[in-house]
Every structure is written in C-alpha cells, then in structure tokens.
Design a protein around this nucleic acid. Structure first.
Length: 190
DNA sequence: ACAAGGATGGACT
DNA sequence: GTCCATCCTTGTA
C-alpha cells in the first residue's frame, strides 16, 4: 500500500463542511469509470446523523482510518453508499456524479442508458462505478481509485440533508448550481 | 437473543 | 404522490 500523498492528505484533513463544498467539481474514477462530483453531504460525529456519533464499531471502522480513506456501507439491505473520510472521523457522502468516463460500462451495470440516471443518487453511483464492501477502508490514493480536486470553485446551492431523521435541520447538503446531474432538486430559499 | 429501522431506488397510482 | 424489497448493524434485555 502506497503512502497517502501529502496533497491528498491535506485536502481531506480539514473541516468536513468545507471539504464537502470543495468536492463539488472534483473528479473521481474507479478503474477509469467516473466523472465530476455534483452533490455531497457532510456528516460530523458531533451530530447524531453521523455513523461515527457513537464511536467506532465494526461497520464504521473505515471512518477512523484517517483523512483520504473511503467508507462504504450498505443501506436498506440493498444499496451501497460512498463516503470520503475527513479529519476527526467526519465524512462526506457522495450523492451524485456527472458521468464523463466509462459511460458504456455504467450503462451495462445499471441497465439504463439515460446519462442523468446513471449516477444521480448515492446508491446509483456505487452501482455504476462497481463499488461495494470490497472497497471499504481503501485509500483514495490507491488503485482502483483516481481522485482529482476541482480546478475552480463551482457556484453552490445549499440545503438540508436527504433521508435522515436526526439533525435534519443542518444545511449540510451541497450541489453544483444548475447541474442536470443532481439526485433531486434543492428546496427554493424562503 | 431478538427487534427495530435505516445517509435508497424503482415501480406504480 | 405512495409502497416496499431486503439485510445487516445496532440497541436493548
């Protein structure tokens, strides 16, 4: 296993809400299949929606491996969800990606051809990129992963996180404004 | 030992 | 909009 490159370590070893914002526009590939991150959510152990809120367990062990690792868990007994670990066992859930590479592979895995449906949800993008428990705890610096930070900051829309019951008021969901590749639309500001 | 329920997606009305 | 598949982790006894 290669050492975590300094720049990757630095990118993720910061406040999880800042990282979640700055991940918009970054690119992630798994064996060359992937694209541009368009939607994220931040989870911090200090709030009860985080899987690390009650400390280390067998499931969340990857959250305690340090910044730049991948945490993948199963949800509702059938889907996988991809997270990037930050400082303090916090993590960013990747909710949507705009596919740019390996699209024919994604179409084969998803058995759908509409580009907008390939990675527009946390479970969908794991299916499209072939991610499962096997990749849980691996480093983003090592194969099969390739990660490239965003070149420029994208215009951001903000809203409450999806599908949670606790700490549901925190505005910790972020998306690229105007993107056609979000999991669902953001609520209009009041 | 056991019951509850979840950071979802797809099918359907 | 509603319904629910499916299973593993977790809290509680």
């Amino acid at each position: 296993m290669a050492a975590m490159p300094v720049d990757l370590q630095r990118f993720f070893d910061r406040d999880v809400v800042l990282v979640a914002r700055q991940l918009l526009g970054a690119r992630i590939f798994v064996d060359g299949v992937g694209g541009i991150i368009t939607e994220t959510e931040a989870y911090h152990p200090s709030e009860p929606a985080s899987h690390a809120h009650r400390g280390p367990t067998a499931r969340n062990a990857a959250m305690f491996l340090g910044p730049g690792h991948v945490y993948i868990y199963r949800i509702y007994g059938l889907h996988w969800c991809l997270n990037f670990v930050c400082s303090d066992a916090a993590a960013v859930l990747i909710r949507a990606i705009e596919p740019t590479a390996g699209i024919s592979t994604m179409i084969a895995r998803r058995r759908l051809s509409a580009p907008r449906e390939l990675c527009s949800g946390p479970g969908k993008l794991c299916d499209a990129m072939g991610l499962s428990k096997l990749e849980d705890g691996r480093s983003l610096a090592d194969p099969p992963f390739a990660f490239h930070p965003a070149a420029a900051e994208a215009p951001v829309v903000v809203g409450p996180r999806i599908g949670i019951t606790r700490a549901a008021d925190l505005p910790w969901r972020f998306g690229i404004a105007g993107s056609a590749f979000l999991s669902r639309s953001f609520p209009r500001p009041p």
